[in-house]
Amino acid sequence: PLVDLRTTARREVLLTNLASIMVGVAFYVVSLVLPQLLQLPTATGYGLGQSMVVAGLCVAPLGLTMMFTAPVYARLSARYGPKVTLIIGLLIIAIGYGGGLGLMNAAWQTVVTSLMLGAGIGLAYSSLPALIVGAVPASETGAANGLNTLMRSIGTSVSSAVIGMVLANTADHVNGVAIPTMHGFRVSFLIATAAVAAGLVLALCLPKPNRSSVPQLRASSEEDANLARAEEVLRGFRGRVLDAQGVPVARAKVTLIDHRGRQAGATLSGEDGSYVLVVPARGPYVLAARAAGHGPLASSATHTGDDRPVDLDLSLPGETVTA
């Protein structure tokens, strides 16, 4: 399967995905209600009689505020964590919908509602990926975040169906035309508020993150192995094998011998003469180097056992020719 179902069943992932559905429901309600309220004629007694352009401008703060809350989210999440940021976002959404029930009498009031809801939805939406990343292994973050995005889409789809049904069933029919009513708008806002309340309960049930085990994002097990090798290099000898004139010697064999005379490691120098040897423990060692066309070399060195590598170049003497 594309998604490991055992991962999605984890408490953190499951609750975050359910909260994502509730945020999706809350996000779409305002997009359905406010444009209709703004464009309904004033003859209805509650419509604001605005043009399509003005209605769009009144709802535009919803998206703009979501964009501008990104820096605020980064600071809040860094200090308090994504769970707290999600809770704050849901509280702001609840205040926005609760206040919006009484702010439907003028165009500027819908702007205030859009600003409040945009700030809350922006904070909530920004928190969801961080919660998912912190709850799954690094190798599954892509699939888990994709599933979380699907949950948000399910929320908006459910919202459009439910609110459409509510507005249709509460509409007044005038000359065969269905006109949404203020009662339908307020019921829609109440449904959104209930969804936010459910999302808030889910967010409060999220377990407290364990800061001592911060997830380390690595691309693969190969990268883990490379990192381990790099850490080992820090605890050894490194340098270059050179000839008598200082020219690098390739494919020279370098052997590490401990104080008991036993071989502790061996390697071949690279094309640039470089070599790396890992030490098993601190103490005195002998590095023996030899290469075809050159005399052998034995050089003593001591490693203190710390994480810093010991740099040691090995200069091979010219090969002696016996008559």
Score class of each variant (00 low, 15 high):
L123Q: 09
G96V: 06
L287S: 09
T149C: 07
V25T: 08
N226G: 02
I21V: 15
V214T: 13
I257H: 05
Q245H: 13
D4I: 09
V162E: 01
A197D: 08
L90C: 10
T42N: 01
L40V: 12
V72H: 05
G199P: 03
G24W: 01
V53R: 13
T8W: 00
A171M: 04
A171Y: 01
N145H: 07
A228W: 08
T8Q: 11
E223P: 00
A144V: 10
Q109M: 06
A194M: 15
M104I: 03
T69W: 02
N17D: 14
C205Q: 15
D306R: 14
T156V: 14
L242R: 13
G99E: 01
R282K: 13
S300C: 01
M22E: 03
A55I: 09
A192I: 08
G270T: 07
I163C: 04
G56V: 03
S20E: 05
A168F: 00
G239P: 02
G236T: 06
P1L: 07
A225G: 04
V321H: 15
P41Q: 06
I88N: 02
G176C: 11
G63S: 11
G96F: 01
T110V: 10
G24E: 03
G184E: 05
A26H: 01
A289C: 10
I87N: 02
L131F: 15
R6Q: 10
G81S: 02
T255C: 10
I132V: 15
L277C: 09
D306M: 08
M66Q: 15
T44Y: 06
L40T: 03
L90F: 12
A130M: 15
V84N: 04
M22L: 09
T320N: 10
Y28G: 00
A288W: 00
P248K: 08
G134S: 10
S159A: 15
L91A: 14
G24V: 04
D258R: 09
A178I: 04
V72A: 08
V279C: 04
L316G: 02
M104T: 09
L128T: 05
G176D: 08
L91F: 05
R186A: 04
T322V: 02
G246P: 08
